[in-house]
């Protein structure tokens, strides 16, 4: 009696294991979704404000109503990466889904925190996947942000050289980090980018610790013309402020990547969510909430923004070069104050 019970249990366990192994090879999205529905919430580390994240999750739940997603907002990309590392070191796991910049994602991958992904299984376009551990889900694109009351349409620089015109002296602003020039160095080469930056510094730009308040200051008219991000200029524009944008060629940008952690508590859910974010529908929903979409996915505003322009960005594999240039350029830009 006892023996048969044991045997029965063993058999059941074996079939379950076999079944699980079999499906893991090519699990269709629907199966993953079904599995995810029983799991714990998908914890997602991302930098958008909670209200925006709510909209994304709402849209996601329209397609996948049974998968719960918990968004935790972590601002400051480096802190996001540090937190994921800390959590993994101390308790063995971090969030399920991780969204961050190239340097953060590659840093996490170096530490073996990220899961290998099968793009085919998740139905993700391969151009979104420079490697097998991450997916390009959005981009921060540098544009000129200007006050349309103070700067007329035909005055706005149409090239990076126009930006250096004397008339902008004391009227222009920039993020305190020279990241846009560091990215331009990819298209122009370091020397040209550095020269441009040095010329720009002579205009006595106002330096902002974040491009969000900078865009607001453009709206308020304290600064007439600034080098900022497309997405951080959206809030004043949407609120009706006299702020307009212009993308220059080449267009520097940062791609934003999303990965799944190795020890994800609900890996199936994370996969479904990632797959959705990489889809046109999901990406548009993401963009609608955060103003950042993937330039690689047709139909997004970000795609249209850089359409026909030369995109300038260091490849993730070149992060080292980018870091060195970036640090040097930051120093040059910071020198703008000392020159005053």
């Amino acid at each position: 009696m006892l023996m048969t019970k044991w045997a029965g249990l063993c058999a059941a366990a074996c079939t379950a294991a076999l079944f699980a192994a079999g499906t893991a090879q090519a699990q269709p999205l629907e199966d993953l979704a079904a599995e995810a529905a029983d799991g714990p919430p998908v914890v997602w580390y991302e930098s958008s404000p909670e209200d925006d994240a709510d909209k994304i999750i709402e849209a996601f739940n329209e397609t996948y109503p049974d998968i719960r997603v918990q968004h935790v907002r972590i601002t400051g990309g480096n802190q996001f990466a540090a937190r994921a590392v800390q959590e993994t070191q101390a308790r063995g796991y971090t969030a399920d889904l991780l969204t961050g910049g190239a340097d953060h994602i590659w840093q996490l991958n170096d530490r073996g925190i990220l899961m290998q992904l099968d793009g085919e299984e998740l139905g993700i376009d391969e151009k979104l996947m420079p490697t097998d551990f991450t997916v390009a889900t959005a981009a921060s694109v540098y544009v000129l942000v200007y006050n349309s009351d103070n700067v007329s349409e035909d005055e706005v620089p149409t090239s990076w050289d126009d930006l250096l015109d004397e008339k902008w002296k004391g009227r222009t602003g920039s993020w305190v980090r020279a990241a846009s020039w560091a990215q331009l160095a990819k298209a122009w080469g370091k020397d040209k980018a550095e020269e441009h930056l040095r010329e720009y510094v002579k205009l006595d730009p106002f330096l902002f610790k974040s491009t969000f308040p900078m865009a607001q200051q453009v709206g308020a008219g304290e600064v007439d013309l600034a080098v900022g991000f497309f997405h951080t200029a959206q809030p004043p524009i949407q609120a009706g402020a006299p702020v307009k944008l212009k993308a220059l060629d080449p267009t520097p940008m940062h791609t934003i990547y999303t990965s799944i952690s190795q020890e994800a508590k609900n890996a199936a859910g994370a996969k479904v969510m990632l797959s959705w974010l990489a889809s046109t529908e999901g990406n548009k929903a993401y963009e609608a909430a955060t103003n950042r979409g993937s330039h690689l996915i047709e139909g997004t505003k970000t795609h249209d923004l850089v359409q026909g322009k030369n995109v300038s960005e260091w490849a993730p594999s070149e992060t080292e070069d980018y870091s060195v240039i970036s640090e040097e350029f930051n120093g040059i830009l910071a020198g703008a104050g000392e020159a005053r």
């Binding site: 400051g76 480096n78 590392v85 910049g101 340097d103 953060h104 996490l108 970036s326 640090e327 930051n330």
Partner: peptide, 14 residues
């Protein structure tokens, strides 16, 4: 603040 958030390298420079 720079070292926490923006320093190149991807990790907060504690």
């Amino acid at each position: 603040v720079y070292l926490v958030n923006d320093a190149p390298g991807g990790l907060a420079e504690y």
